[in-house]
């Protein structure tokens, strides 16, 4: 039986929506706000107020994988070196949450992984420290220097990158069509070994919409974006400029074989789906956990069990927490 590609992709997106995990998202947000407040209290006038970033903030999150990041903009004079800033944040978070969470240094952030709660949920947040590039200019230019932590060996010494996280967030603002395609490509990527950075797929998609006429139904749009990636990934001089730093070309994060590989993958996916529409299910799977939601919501109104009367009495003993 042939699969309606458009309909299938709508279901894929629907079953990956964040609202299915609203309860969990609320927990993340609550913890995030708590941590932001603790940082503001501790660092006082050494920082600008922490702000939210990550896929959740960008509205490109999918419920099988999402990040709630917090960026802490330190003032220029707060620390004389970026590694001191990074260590200070790590030490503070360790003092504050070390007993109820695992704190670890990551590439440009400190990770907080809270211990499993009573519901079995694990909340994790990435706290990204950045120091303003130009003294007292952060509010105007949003430019930050991030410390790049490296735990490997003596020779790959730690360094820093300049970025503008606000500009990265703004780059994807109000682009609902692009976001849908980005979510689909992330679903494919996560399902397929997560070989590519989400940020790379994000920039590819936005550029495709920018350069080509990406229209039609959702499958047609996805296909056109994949064609664009296929055609351009290996093209000489093709760049994907980081909106947070014009010197940063995301294509440089791929080796030449990686570029060829990406181009070939796109070609294969398009071919296989066009030769048999059922193949779309293996590249873009639904989230089975939430597949039945649609059916149950098609019934509207308050339900009464079969038999007629709504008259009910509560069961004898119940516990609430």
């Amino acid at each position: 039986m042939a699969t309606d590609k458009h309909e299938h992709l709508e279901t894929v997106l629907e079953t990956h929506r964040m609202t299915h995990v609203q309860n969990l998202v609320d927990k993340f947000k609550e913890k995030r706000n708590e941590v932001k407040q603790a940082l503001a209290n501790h660092y006082g006038s050494d920082i600008y107020y922490p702000f939210d970033s990550g896929s959740f903030k960008k509205h490109t999150a999918i419920n099988t994988k999402f990040d709630l990041d917090v960026v802490v903009p330190f003032k220029k004079d707060s620390f004389d070196t970026l590694d001191k800033m990074f260590d200070s944040l790590n030490d503070f978070l360790d003092d504050e949450y070390g007993e109820i969470a695992t704190i670890r240094k990551q590439k440009v952030s400190i990770g907080i992984i809270f211990d499993e709660d009573d519901d079995g949920d694990v909340i994790n947040l990435d706290i990204v420290p950045g120091r303003e590039l130009n003294k007292d200019q952060y509010s105007a230019d949003n430019k930050l220097n991030l410390f790049v932590y490296s735990k490997y060996g003596l020779f790959s010494s730690s360094t820093y990158i300049q970025t503008n996280i606000q500009a990265q967030i703004d780059h994807i603002k109000a682009k609902e069509n692009e976001r849908k395609i980005i979510r689909l490509l992330k679903i494919w990527n996560n399902n397929d070994g997560k070989e590519y950075k989400s940020f790379l797929l994000e920039l590819f998609t936005i550029k495709a919409f920018d350069k080509e006429d990406i229209s039609g139904n959702i499958w047609e749009k996805l296909e056109k974006v994949m064609e664009y990636i296929k055609d351009n990934a290996t093209k000489d001089g093709f760049k994907l400029i980081d909106p947070g730093n014009s010197n940063n070309d995301l294509m440089d994060t791929l080796e030449s074989w990686g570029k060829t590989n990406l181009s070939n993958r796109m070609e294969t996916i398009i071919e296989r789906i066009n030769s048999n529409s059922d193949n779309i299910k293996s590249y873009f799977p639904t989230n089975k956990d939430f597949e039945d939601d649609d059916k149950s919501s098609s019934s509207v109104g308050y339900g009464i069990k079969t038999g007629g009367t709504a008259y009910s009495t509560p069961p004898k003993n119940e516990r609430f927490g």
């Binding site: 927990k27 009573d118 339900g303 009464i304 069990k305 709504a310 008259y311 509560p314 069961p315 516990r319």
Partner: peptide
């Protein structure tokens, strides 16, 4: 917060499936 707990959800599952309860929602 007003977020429901796991225990709350479990209680509501019990309630809906209880024979003295004729409402589904």
């Amino acid at each position: 917060s007003t977020r429901y707990s796991d225990i709350d959800l479990r209680a509501m599952i019990n309630i809906e499936s209880s024979p003295s309860v004729n409402i589904k929602n």
